[in-house]
Structures are given as structure tokens and as C-alpha cells.
Deep mutational scan, measured.
Amino acid sequence: VPQRAWTVEQLRSEQLPKKDIIKFLQEHGSDSFLAEHKLLGNIKNVAKTANKDHLVTAYNHLFETKRFK
């Protein structure tokens, strides 16, 4: 089981690129989880459509539901 890579403050910070969060989610989330949160596909394309709040919610949801690969 992966550990949380970032704190809530870090997740919301401008310093953390959306692409980093997407990469983490794609590496650790199950396909059904990723599909549900519309996070499947090319990281660049996902970054265009997903806002930061959406990614933070998905990140927290992944750990709450433990839907890891």
C-alpha cells in the first residue's frame, strides 16, 4: 500500500504541479478508480481537463477507499 506523498497543504499549493498528482494517481489507483474520476489517459490531457480541487478530492478518495492497483 502506498503512503501519502503530500500533506493537504502541499496538495493545495501552487508549488505542486497537477501532473505530479495525476502521475501518482495513475501509478497507484485501480483502473476502475481512475475511470470513475476521469483520470485515465495521457497525463497532459488529463491535466488540461482536471482542476486541482478534483485531483485533491481523488487523491484523498484513493486513500479512503484503498482502491489501489
Score class of each variant (00 low, 15 high):
T7F: 04
E27Q: 11
Q15Y: 11
L39D: 01
K18Q: 07
E64V: 10
Q26F: 06
H61D: 15
F24R: 01
V56A: 10
E27N: 09
Q10C: 08
A50H: 09
F63N: 01
D20A: 08
A35G: 08
S32M: 09
T7M: 03
Q26D: 01
D20R: 13
T65F: 14
K23V: 08
L55D: 01
E14P: 15
S13C: 04
A47C: 13
V1F: 13
Q3E: 14
L39T: 01
V8H: 07
F63W: 06
N51H: 09
S32R: 11
T65H: 14
I22A: 03
H54C: 13
P17Y: 08
K19T: 14
K66Y: 09
I21E: 01
K23H: 08
A35C: 15
I43E: 07
I22L: 09
L16A: 06
N51W: 06
I21L: 05
L34M: 03
S30R: 06
G29Q: 01
F24T: 02
K19S: 15
K18I: 12
L34R: 03
V1P: 11
N60T: 12
T65S: 11
Q15D: 10
K48V: 12
K19V: 13
L25Y: 00
L16W: 04
E14T: 13
L55G: 00
H37S: 04
K19Y: 13
V1I: 12
W6V: 06
N60M: 14
A35F: 14
F68E: 02
L62M: 07
H37E: 04
L62V: 03
Q10L: 05
K44L: 14
F63K: 01
E36L: 10
G29Y: 01
G29C: 05
Q3G: 06
W6G: 06
A5S: 11
E14G: 13
H54Q: 12
T57F: 14
E9K: 05
R4Y: 08
E36N: 06
L16G: 02
K44I: 14
A47T: 13
K38L: 10
D20W: 05
N42V: 12
I21F: 02
Q3V: 10
K48H: 13
K38N: 09
Q26P: 00
R67H: 07
N45W: 15
A5Q: 15
N42P: 14
A58S: 07
R67N: 10
D20L: 12
H28E: 05
E9P: 04
D53T: 07
Q15W: 10
K38G: 13
I22S: 01
K69H: 06
K52P: 03
A58W: 03
K18G: 10
A58C: 08
N45D: 15
V46A: 06
E14K: 14
Q26W: 09
F33S: 00
R4V: 05
E36R: 08
D31S: 12
L62W: 02
E64L: 10
F68C: 03
K52H: 04
K48E: 15
K23C: 10
W6T: 06
K69M: 05
I43H: 08
V56R: 03
P2C: 14
V56D: 02
K18N: 10
H28S: 11
L25N: 00
E64P: 01
N60K: 06
E27A: 08
L34N: 04
Q3K: 14
Q10F: 07
K48L: 15
H61S: 14
N60F: 13
R4I: 05
V46H: 04
E27W: 05
K66F: 09
V8T: 14
K23D: 06
T57V: 13
R12W: 15
Q10H: 05
P17D: 14
Q3Y: 07
F33T: 00
Q26N: 03
P17W: 04
H61A: 13
T65R: 09
L16S: 03
H37N: 07
L25A: 00
H54I: 09
D20V: 13
L40E: 08
Q26M: 07
T49Y: 13
V56W: 03
V1S: 08
T7A: 03
R12S: 08
T49N: 09
A50S: 11
K23W: 06
T57W: 13
E14S: 14
Q10W: 04
S32C: 14
G29S: 09
R67W: 06
I43F: 08
A47H: 08
T57E: 13
A50K: 10
W6R: 05
W6S: 06
P17I: 06
L16M: 06
K18P: 13
S32T: 11
W6Q: 06
K44V: 14
T65Q: 12
L11Q: 02
L55P: 00
K23R: 11
T49K: 09
V1N: 09
Q10R: 02
H61L: 12
N60S: 09
L40C: 14
R67L: 07
A47F: 06
N42W: 12
E14Y: 09
E64T: 09
H28M: 08
G41L: 03
A50V: 15
L55C: 05
H61F: 09
L55M: 04
S32F: 08
H54P: 02
L39W: 01
L39A: 02
Q10T: 04
K18C: 15
H61P: 00
L16D: 01
E36V: 08
I22K: 01
D31I: 14
K69V: 06
D53Y: 07
S30H: 09
H61Y: 09
R67I: 04
N60Y: 07
L11V: 03
E9V: 04
E64G: 05
H37D: 00
N42Y: 13
P2W: 03
Y59V: 03
K48I: 13
F33Y: 07
T7H: 04
A58T: 06
G29E: 00
G29D: 00
V56G: 03
V8N: 15
I22M: 04
A35L: 12
A47S: 14
F68L: 02
D20E: 13
I22E: 01
A5R: 15
N42A: 13
N51P: 07
Q26C: 05
